[in-house]
Design a protein around this nucleic acid. Structure first.
Length: 478
RNA sequence: GCCAGGGUAGCUUAGCGGUAGAGCACAGGAUUCAUAUCCCUGCGGUCGUGGGUCCGACUCCCACCCCUGGUACCA
């Protein structure tokens, strides 16, 4: 049995989850479930990036105590995962003291290796945003886009820096040779292009004042907090015991797969491996980079007010319906679009008329026949089969297309054999074939639509098969 | 600005030198085991725009337009 350690990105908890988070959860869960089915020992981690300054700002805006605000938002993400049947094994909070100690250990290892040093940093600071900006990021008046009319201050601060520049050659080699594999290939090229331009050292700490005294303290310097990414990435290690249960850590590290959105690839492909190299720890094996969801062709944004909350959709259509949409109708390697209209369409044509109707008609035929259908075990994830290849390449859309082709083939077979006109051995043989095919389909659906797969399995396990209420009742109203 | 990827029927997309394929949606027909379902047939494309190469281009070359991402110490 091989171990398989998979992570999603650690969501920011400054706001409630949206449908984009659901996309990543479901993609990663499908990979995790697939690995469990083929017999791997799986650990599936998510958590909350709770130490970012933006969380503090969001809490202040909401006039709430920080910890309370964060705990509440974190719970929303956790609840979403539950509602989507996403089976995380570990949920690591960034505000957890174990995580703090673990991150301090990582820092100490980097410092011990001589890769962290102190330097004065001078930059243009926007008090409104509480962020530093580069000159190129500002408008023609030299003011930040969010706060026009407000002058930026030149702030000088002493920070700790990480010697990222030492790792350019090594990282290039690691990515080039797929020692750290980045999928799809154009994302790998993007990172190689980034490396080619040369790496600068990065600041990895903030003054307590600037961090609003929130976050992980720098070891040996209580006046400074860690740069959020330094500790956020380390959630992948702190969640599995780094510096608090080393046996557990040794069992699971390194990560076999990080699932991330395209916007945070650099942190995972460049910074994270560099920190680990400095600390002389092992490196993640693979990074799967998905794109984003638009809504009705528009980018989701608070300003436009088109953020889609997945919870009501799950309540209305069911977790598997949303899972189906996100996996089958969104291309994993390019931006996909979401609208409730499209979800409803996919629900009615593919789930209600397709899978659901097929299940209903076969069940009724079996019930009417009065025959027995003894259960047989069958493996569907056969090495080198197209379905497995699609799964290994994260082509969930193609994988489901394949399964839906089988569904419509079965419908055609039924049409062709007209079992309602048959009797005796002819009928039994035909129905046995249909039942076996349906059992295969339910097995194949397990990583994608776990609840539905289970229902079909139960209904068709035999020996007696009877009709039950529809899996996906058709939806007529808007 | 520069770099990478993309623009194919209403929607999602396959094809990447030899008279455009699929699914959904839509229209008609047939059937009744089934969730007004399923099955069959049909409708629907000057393949982003303008040039060029070639006997022949969605497919190769050039220019331009639009979309997405990257272009670091914001996430």
């Amino acid at each position: 049995m091989n171990k398989f350690y998979i992570t999603t990105a650690i969501p920011y908890v400054n706001a409630k989850p949206h449908i984009g988070h659901a996309l990543e959860f479901v993609q990663a869960d499908t990979i995790a479930r697939y690995n469990r089915i083929i017999g791997n020992d799986v650990l599936f981690l998510c958590g909350g990036d709770e130490n970012a300054i933006k969380n503090v700002q969001a809490a202040e805006k909401a006039k709430r105590p920080i910890q309370e605000f964060i705990d509440e938002n974190t719970k929303c993400f956790y609840d979403l995962s539950k509602k989507l049947n996403v089976q995380f094994t570990v949920w690591q909070k960034g505000s957890d003291s174990k995580h703090h100690l673990s991150s301090q250990k990582l820092w100490e290892l980097c410092a011990l290796a001589g890769k962290i040093y102190k330097k004065r940093y001078k930059g243009l600071y926007c008090v409104g945003c509480e962020l530093f900006y580069e000159k190129e990021e500002l408008d023609q008046n030299g003011e930040c886009l969010e706060h026009p009319g407000r002058k930026l201050e030149e702030v000088e601060e002493e920070n700790y820096f990480f010697k990222l520049s030492d790792y350019q050659k090594q990282l290039n080699e690691l990515i080039e040779t797929d020692t750290i594999a980045i999928l799809p290939a154009n994302r790998k090229k993007e990172m190689l292009a980034f490396l080619k331009r040369g790496l600068r050292d990065i600041s990895v700490s903030r003054s307590n004042t600037r961090a609003k005294n929130w976050g992980v303290s720098v070891p040996g310097d209580p006046a400074q907090k860690m740069y959020v990414w330094f500790d956020a990435l380390n959630i992948y290690q702190s969640g599995i015991g780094f510096n608090w249960d080393m046996d557990k850590y040794k069992k699971w590290w390194p990560a076999n797969l990080h699932v991330v959105g395209k916007g945070i690839l650099r942190f995972h492909a460049i910074y994270w491996p560099a920190f680990l190299l400095a600390a002389e720890l092992e490196l993640p094996k693979k990074i799967f980079v998905h794109d984003y969801l638009t809504v009705n062709g528009q980018k989701m944004s608070k300003t436009i007010g088109n953020i889609v909350d997945p919870i009501p959709l799950i309540n209305k259509y069911g977790a598997d319906a949303l899972r189906y949409y996100l996996l089958a109708k969104v291309s994993p390697f390019s931006d996909g679009d979401f609208s409730e209209e499209k979800l409803k369409q996919a629900y009615n044509s593919d789930l209600a008329n397709g899978l659901g109707n097929l299940v209903a008609r076969v069940a009724k035929l079996c019930e009417n026949s009065g025959f027995d259908y003894p259960e047989k075990e069958k493996h569907v994830f056969v090495k080198d089969s197209p379905l497995v290849e699609y799964l290994e390449e994260f082509r969930f859309d193609e994988a489901l297309k394949l399964i839906w082709y089988e569904i419509s083939s079965l419908d055609r077979t039924i049409q062709d054999k007209t079992p309602w006109k048959l009797a005796g051995e002819d009928l039994h043989e035909t129905l046995l074939f249909l039942v076996e095919e349906l059992r295969s389909i339910s097995n194949e659906l397990k990583p994608f639509l776990p609840e539905t797969a289970e229902k079909i399995k139960e209904q068709f396990k035999g020996p007696k098969i009877i009709s039950q209420k529809p899996l996906f009742p058709r939806i007529y109203t808007p």
